[in-house]
Every structure is written in C-alpha cells, then in structure tokens.
Design a protein around this nucleic acid. Structure first.
Lengths: 331, 331
DNA sequence: ATCACCGATGTAAACGTTTACACGATAACT
DNA sequence: AGTTATCGTGTAAACGTTTACATCGGTGAT
C-alpha cells in the first residue's frame, strides 16, 4: 500500500539503487537524476520505511528511555528533553516504563539485542548489583541518569546533588545562620544520601556544629517532613534554619510551623531542594535548589547519540548538570 | 553478533522454519522438537529481532504517543498508563513530543506510513482544521485523547469535563450555596470551555443566578486566578463560593483571599479542578475534581491495540473517563 | 496392497532498503 | 590511438524472520 522505492524507480525510470542514492543525498548522482527522483517521490508521497532501513543497516535510530517504577513530576521534562534532542539528530525515542509487571532489570533485558533500539538511557534511582550485572552484558551503548556518578565505568549524567547541598549550606552560613538542621531523604536513595553528605561536609568546612538530634530522617514526603520537624520544634534550643532534602518535606515543615503559630523565616527559616512547581507559590515562597531537568535529558541524549553514531567513543564520561540556588523568602 | 534463528537451527539440527514455528508456539511442532529448539535458544541467549519481525510481517507492534508542546504534570502518568498497557499486550511505546522544532501536525506526518508505528495515540488540547486534515489521511489506526469528544468520527478518550463541572456545581448547591462564581480557563482550551459549559448548564438547571461579572476569565495559571478574583473581592456583594476551572487558579484565589485576611471557607469558599499534587496539602485542603489520568492512558492504549490487532474495528468509540469529586475543606 | 490423507518438517520466496561490485561511457592521460 | 581513471548508473546480494507450498513418512480405510 505505502509507496516504496520500487514505485519511485518505475516512475522516474531509474533503478532502485539510484533512487536510494538520490534520496540519501549521494553526491555521485546527477542533479538531473536527483530532481527526477525527488519529484517522483513527492508525487507518490513517499516515506521511507524506517523499519526496513534500520533492519538492513543492522542498527537502529531509536533511542530507548528506561524509567523506574516511580512517578515523578520531572519525568515528562526528561522525556521531552531526550525526545527533542533525538529528533534534532534524526532519532526516535522509545519509552520503557518499569512497573509492577516489569522491573528495571527486566526492562534492560527487554532491550537487550532485540535490535529495536540502537542505544538507551536509563534512569536509576539506586544502582544495585542486579542492574549493574544486566548493564555489564549489554551490547548496545547506553547512558545512565542517576544521582550518583560512582556507578562503575559507565557514561553517566548526574545532578550535582552533593555540590548543590554544599552550596546551600554555604549560602545559609553567608546569611549568618549558625544553627542548621537537616531532614534527609530515604536511606536507599542516592540523591538523598549525596545531599546529606554535602550538608555534612559543608558544615564541617564552615565550622558549623552538627548535632545528632538535628539530623532528622525523612522520606521525601510531606508527612515525613512534618513528622521530622515536630521532633525538634518543642525543644527550647531550636535551630535557626532547617534544610530539607527536598521541597515536599520543606512544605511539610511549613505546615508544622504554621500550625504552631510560628512565622517563617522570622521564627525559623526553611530551605528545600528540587524547586517543584508549588515552591514558588508557597507562602512564603521557598528558597530551594533548581535542577535543570530538561538539560539532563538533553545531555544524556546527546552523549548517547555520540556513542550511537560512533562519533565519540572515548572512555566513559561523567557529566554533571549544574543546578542553581533559587533564593526566595523562606530564609 | 546477536544470535539468530539460523544459529538455533544449526544447534538444534532443524530448519529455520521449524525454529520460527517452535518459538511462536505453533501447535504443529512436536513437543520434543520444541524442547530442543527452546533449549538451543536459551543456550544462545536468543532474542528475536523485533525490527526484522515487524518488517517481514508488514506491521509494527510499536504504539506511537504524540504529545503536544506543553509540559504537564499529568503527562508522565499518561505515558506510564499507555506503556503499561502496551507492555501487557506485547507492544512497545514510542513517544513523539512536539516542541519548537516539531509541531503536532508535523508529528503526525512523521509517523505517517513510515512503518515505524502500527498505530498511535495523540493528545490534542484543541482540535483544529490542520490536525483534523492530517488525521483524515492517516493510514494507521489511532486514538485521540482530548477534552472534547465532538472531534469528528474518530476514536476518542476524553475526561468528562462537562459532567464533572456539572457535578461540582450540584454538589455546591446541595451544600446550600446560592451565589457561585466561576473562573474559566484559556479560550482556546477545550477542557476549559467544557468546564465552563458544565458550570453554566448546572446553574441554569438549579436556578442559580448567573451574574456576568462573576464569570471571570482566567488562564489556568496561579497569577491568573489571583487577578480574576481580585476583581470581585472588593465588592460588597461577594459570591459565597468560587469554582475555578483548575486547581492552579484556585490556589491563586487562596493567595488573594488570605492576603486580605479573609478565611476559607468561612468568608468565601473555593473549589478547583484537576486534583494536582499540592491540592491535598493546601491550607485548607482544596475540594476539587480528580481525573483518573492513568486510566486515560490505559483505555486509550487498550482501544488502540484492539484496532491494531484487528480485534475490534467497529465504528469510532467515544470513551469517557469517569472522574470523582474530592471533597476536602475549602468549602 | 493400494490409496488418500494427515502431521511434521523442510525449502524457498518475500518484505524494503542499502551497498559492494560490475558495467559502460566519457574524459584525461600517455 | 590506446590505455587508464573517473563518473553515473544498474545488478544483485544481504539483513532475520515469517509463511505458502512442497515433501516425506506414517496411519487408517478400502
């Protein structure tokens, strides 16, 4: 049904090889012949069969994008970033979500040398042995998006969690804060761990006392933030500012604080991490760290396509996405 | 490099045809032969080449998902819903985002009979002539996700904007409210239009007076909501409740109201639409309408796969996703 | 014992495209 | 003029899989 190069060949009175060459811009074909072929192609409304092309070339211009089984406000931005870059390079984007019926490892196996994708990008919340093993045997190029860049000798795009947390603490110190508490995220989340580490190191460097009971455990949820802060809000000696490892927990702190009639930032200041949609609109607006999510997708895709094109096969690169402090009114 | 059925054939001492049949579960092949083939396949760690399979079968088990060029909190849920269903049926999901370099129409053309996808789902914020024309000529099956189901004779999955808005008004009336204002969304957004229509019709039916200056224009942003409500907050004769066409605008109203020292819902009540993440945590928590976003993706994918399988080619279906009133403390 | 049939397997063509190689014609050398 | 490059085009093979058709052995009916 769909027109093929054979039909173009017949219409233009040339061989299919010439058609193929004319369409792919081979310099050897006469401009006259090229004109003929292109006209015929336009007339027939020809679209090359991508499947056939990839198949015969033995490689695919499809970029796989493997997502973990959690939902996240930022995923659509990453997807968009990847697809935009893919498109600009003439590639397609295939999303493989993990979910109850398909684990992250299984997702990798799905793509393993079935020829569908020519490479893939994988979002890994926490690198474990299973995933690493699966990736070790992978034959197509891939890039990892992760909070952590210590993940073996793989190409990785990371957010600079550590540096950003560090930066946040130094900013607070610069504003004169000395008594700083931290609410961390889940223990099995690399982003959370690195943010905590950044906090701790920055405190050490700036001679800020780290009190154990001001090192609170959270879980990245609003309730978790509320729960955590309530543990120290009753004490006489309160911290001046609380640095929550993500905005959701920071907003949980807002609730706890405001329901006690305390004022942010006068009685106690709050900062977060992520710059989710609402943070700008919270009252007071939340000081936080903004990660350039679409750049993550873009750069991961660019690096992957370099590898797929064979343009740049140098050893694994670690790309860190710069993030920025968003200073608002909560401190 | 990657193992093929030829290698399996050699290892199992059968022909490639038998291998193909054994792998695809043809009943004609002996269980003994099947055992041999499967063993060989496992030994070689064989994965069928999807590209070759789709190519030779002349159809694709890839579902295209065309997204508009706006970012949305709900997209990742829709993507997940689609991919989950695709996976369960042995299909793959390919995302085609529209953006500055590729319009929605161009996205459709991209997929047009290039063999890559066997069908697609397209999210359309507002159906216009161009898109409709592009879709008319499309050869592969597709399903539209839209706020509006009047979009010609196409298969469509819609949220029931109209009914939900209607339901919201009747709920408010049931609570005794008589003076109701509405802030609508952008004029070129179908969801917004239908919500307004639902509001108007429900008011008429319930003999609620519709005042023109209580029919406010918004733009789905927080600032828009704030701006709109400020127009009527100074008047002596204020509405008892404001029904915003989405949560963002409702939260804008929160700001305006609370900065005047008024209390929600005692002085004025607010309701929204969408049930975005924050609405649950707003203070007071926001009464709104929750759309089952993942069901939208799921049902669209199910319908599409029916068509792709040829299981069900009956005339275009209009599927409406039921949504639910989420009653909280803002009214 | 012959025939017809059936069930299991093999043979080979087909899908649309790319590309190595062959070929003929023309141009550029000796 | 004869040889050799060069250039444009054609021929045909290849990619991995599916599937229509052929083949062959065996079974049951006559």
């Amino acid at each position: 049904m769909a027109p093929t190069i054979k039909q173009i060949a017949k219409l233009a009175n040339v061989s299919i090889a010439t058609v193929s060459r004319a369409l792919s811009g081979d310099e050897k074909v006469t401009s006259e012949t090229k004109r003929l072929v292109l006209n015929a192609a336009r007339e027939l409304n020809y679209r090359p069969n991508i499947l056939a092309r990839n198949f015969v070339k033995g490689k695919s211009n499809i970029v796989g994008l493997i997502l973990p089984d959690i939902s996240d406000e930022f995923f659509s931005e990453i997807i968009r970033g990847v697809d935009e870059t893919s498109y600009d390079h003439g590639y397609y984007t295939m999303v493989i979500s993990s979910h109850k019926n398909r684990s992250l490892v299984e997702s990798v196996h799905t793509l393993m040398s079935n020829g569908l994708v020519g490479g893939f990008i994988i979002l890994i919340p926490f690198m474990d042995q299973k995933i690493e093993a699966a990736l070790m045997h992978e034959r197509v190029p891939f890039v990892i998006i992760s909070g952590d860049n210590n993940a073996g000798e793989f190409d990785t795009v990371t957010t600079n969690n550590y540096q950003s947390a560090f930066m946040m603490v130094e900013f607070l110190v610069g504003k004169g804060y000395k008594k700083i508490a931290h609410i961390s995220g889940p223990a099995d989340n690399n982003d959370a761990l690195l943010r905590k580490k950044g906090f701790l190191d920055a405190c050490s460097k700036n001679k800020i006392e780290i009190r154990n009971n001001w090192l609170l455990d959270g879980d990245f949820t609003m309730e978790g933030g509320e729960l955590a802060i309530n543990k120290i809000l009753n004490e006489d000696d309160k911290p001046e500012v609380i640095f929550a490892a993500n905005d959701m927990m920071a907003l949980g702190c807002y609730n706890a604080i405001q329901s006690r009639g305390l004022k942010i930032p006068d009685d106690i200041a709050i900062t977060g991490f992520d710059d989710i949609l609402i943070s700008k609109y919270a009252n007071p607006s939340l000081t936080t760290v903004k990660v350039n999510t679409d750049r993550i997708g873009k750069l991961a895709a660019e690096r992957l396509i370099e590898k797929m094109d064979g343009t740049n096969n140098k050893t694994a690169q670690k790309i860190e996405i710069e993030s920025e402090l968003v200073i608002r009114n909560s401190c």
